[in-house]
Every structure is written in structure tokens, then in C-alpha cells.
């Protein structure tokens, strides 16, 4: 341990650089605009009550408000009532910075909707990938048919094509079909995972033939074998693939940026965050960092809980 102090020193310096933006993101999401501007308040900020100026402005009492409130303040002049109302508004618009930041994150933009879209899109992509890839992988691994080598060759060739690289022709095809700005556009290009086929095939190769022969003896069709015999044996590999796929598509920004233009109802979390950034002026750092924290948190928490599986899943590529 003492001999290793210099190693720890280097690694800890690295840790500081790696964690700095995370630290700042979470810290800013707690602080008031003033504290962010002046760089005060430590990690959590002072959490002193702050006044939401926009909220006060919205509640600025006009003639009607004053008339309506007249019986609550009997016998007082209009200007006194006005001041009293303004004071009330200020009191009600005061809150702790952390509450302000997080409520703003969820109310200024439909963040919940974005998160829901993220879940819908990533889940559909993964499910369709499995439904398409698993039978093909089984056929390539365990069935003898003319053309098998050709099909597998095609899979190996398609592994060379990154989907992001062919985004432009894909976009043109979808535009011609009138499918831009739909869930379909967000999902379709990812429905085929050649990597998934390849991975599952390599896995199925290790499943003993006896298992399949036994299933056939029991009168199972090939289709039933895929879903009732092969699928259960493949759970660990599938779990790793699920993590790989979900992390990639939850975090993907490029493809949604291309096919979703303007229609907020379809925004995925990264797109929503981007729009938030476009809208905001300097005073919006806090809420924006709150939104960023909300978007980053689910995967990070899942990762911290199931580290081993995540590292396995993300580095799946290494098995190629």
C-alpha cells in the first residue's frame, strides 16, 4: 500500500478530472442562479429561500385583481392593496433553489414525456431486435440449409456498416415514405442488429445438439424450439445484449436529431435537453443541470447496482 502511493496519486488525479463534470452538474442543479454566478455555496449551495422572478411577474396584480381583493383588505387604498398582493405573490413564489431547479426542469419542458419517449423507443428497439435476431441466429447456428454460408457472410459484411454512417440515405427513404417525425422513424433503422445475430449465433453454437434433438422428439416445431428451448438457455447472453442496446439507444442523440424535427411529443431525453439549452438564458443553468441530472441518473444508478453485468454488456463488442 505505502509502496503504491504514487499509483494512487495518479489515479486520484484522474478521478478528479473524470468526476469534475458530474460534480458540477449535480452541484449546479442544487444551487440558486446567484450562487452559480458567484461560484459560492459549496456542493449543496446555501439553500436560502429564493424568489422566482418569472412567477412574481406572472402574478403582477392588475386592476381586476385589486378589485377582487378589495373585500379582503377593507377600507384600504388601491395602492396599499396592490403592495399587499405583490408581497403575497413574492412570498408564494419563494422556494428553495433545489426545489426551484427541479420543478422548473419538469414544468418548463415536458420532461416526463421525453423520459417516457426514451423508454418507449429503447424498449421497442430491444424487443424487435430480439424477435428478429434470435430466430436467425438459431437457424445460422443449428440448422443445415443451402445458402447458410451466404447468409452468414452477409451478416459479417453488414457488421462493417455503422448505422449512423448511412443516416442520410435512411433519412431520405423515411422522408419519401412520409415517416419522419414518427416513432417508427426512431425505431426502424435499429430493428436489425447484425451484431445481435452474430453474438447469439456464437452463443447458440455452444448449445448441445442433443437438447434440440430431444425437443424435436417431443414433437416441437422449429419455431417453438427457438422460443421455448433456445431463448431460456440464452438469458445471460441476452441480458448482456439488452444492456448494450439500451445504453446505446437511451444515449443516442444523432439519429433522433435527424428524424425528429420540431415535434416535441416525440423528443427523446437528449433531444429534450438540447431544446432546453436552446431556450434558456444564463439564469437557467440550474434547471438545465437538473434536467441533465434526471436524464443521466437512471443508467448511472442501474450501472452502480449491477456493475459487472453492465461492463460485460457494454464491452460485448470485445467478443467479436
Amino acid at each position: 500500500m505505502t509502496r503504491d502511493w504514487w499509483k494512487h496519486l495518479i489515479l486520484i488525479l484522474g478521478v478528479i478530472v473524470v468526476l469534475a463534470p458530474f460534480y458540477m452538474m449535480v452541484s449546479y442543479s442544487f444551487k440558486s442562479p446567484g450562487e452559480i454566478d458567484r461560484g459560492e455555496g459549496g456542493f449543496f449551495g446555501q439553500q436560502q429561500l429564493m424568489v422566482d422572478e418569472r412567477c412574481v411577474k406572472l402574478r403582477d396584480p392588475d386592476r381586476n385583481d385589486i378589485a377582487a381583493a378589495a373585500d379582503r383588505f377593507p377600507g384600504q387604498s388601491d395602492s396599499t392593496i396592490r403592495d399587499a398582493l405583490a408581497a403575497e405573490a413574492t412570498a408564494e413564489c419563494s422556494m428553495r433553489p433545489v426545489v426551484f431547479n427541479y420543478t422548473k426542469a419538469f414544468t418548463e419542458a415536458p420532461l416526463l414525456r421525453y423520459l417516457l419517449n426514451g423508454v418507449i423507443v429503447t424498449a421497442s428497439i430491444f424487443l424487435i431486435q430480439v424477435v428478429v435476431a434470435l430466430p436467425a441466429a438459431y437457424a445460422l447456428a443449428k440448422l443445415k440449409f443451402w445458402g447458410r454460408d451466404a447468409v452468414f457472410g452477409l451478416v459479417l459484411f453488414c457488421l462493417l456498416i455503422p448505422v449512423h454512417a448511412i443516416a442520410l440515405p435512411l433519412y431520405i427513404m423515411l422522408a419519401k415514405l412520409g415517416l419522419t417525425n414518427t416513432y417508427a422513424a426512431l425505431v426502424v433503422p435499429w430493428t436489425i442488429s447484425v451484431f445481435g445475430i452474430f453474438l447469439m449465433r456464437q452463443f447458440f453454437m455452444t448449445v448441445p445438439d442433443d437438447l434440440i434433438d430431444a425437443a424435436r422428439m417431443d414433437g416441437m416445431g422449429e419455431f417453438a424450439i427457438v422460443w421455448r428451448v433456445m431463448l431460456p438457455t440464452a438469458i445471460p447472453a441476452l441480458l448482456a445484449f439488452a444492456i448494450f442496446s439500451i445504453v446505446a439507444h437511451w444515449n443516442d442523440y444523432f439519429w433522433p436529431r435527424i428524424v425528429v424535427t420540431g415535434n416535441r411529443d416525440l423528443f427523446t431525453p437528449p433531444l429534450g435537453l438540447r431544446e432546453f439549452k436552446g431556450d434558456g438564458d444564463g439564469s437557467f443553468f440550474g434547471p438545465m443541470m437538473a434536467a441533465a441530472t434526471v436524464i443521466v441518473t437512471p443508467l448511472i444508478v442501474a450501472f452502480l447496482v449491477a456493475q459487472k453485468r453492465f461492463i460485460e454488456g457494454i464491452t460485448l463488442n470485445g467478443m467479436k
Binding site: V131, V132, A133, P135, A136, Y138, A139, L140, L143, K144, F145, W146, G147, R148, V151, L154, V155, C158, I161, V163, I166, L168, P169, L170, I172, M173, V188, P189, T191, I192, V194, I197, G221, E222, F223, V226
Partner: peptide, 28 residues
Amino acid sequence: KERRAAWVLTAPALTLMVIVLLAPVIIA
């Protein structure tokens, strides 16, 4: 029978591979 089953099982993947990956490369 096995041959037929194999083609049915690979058909969706093959179709998507051609439409989603190969066709765009040719189109581009």
C-alpha cells in the same frame, strides 16, 4: 423441412438487412 424452417426463420432478418443496411449504401 429443416431447410424451409431455416428460411422462414431468417427471412425477417434478411429482409431488414437488405432494406435497412444494404439498400441505403447503394442509394447513397
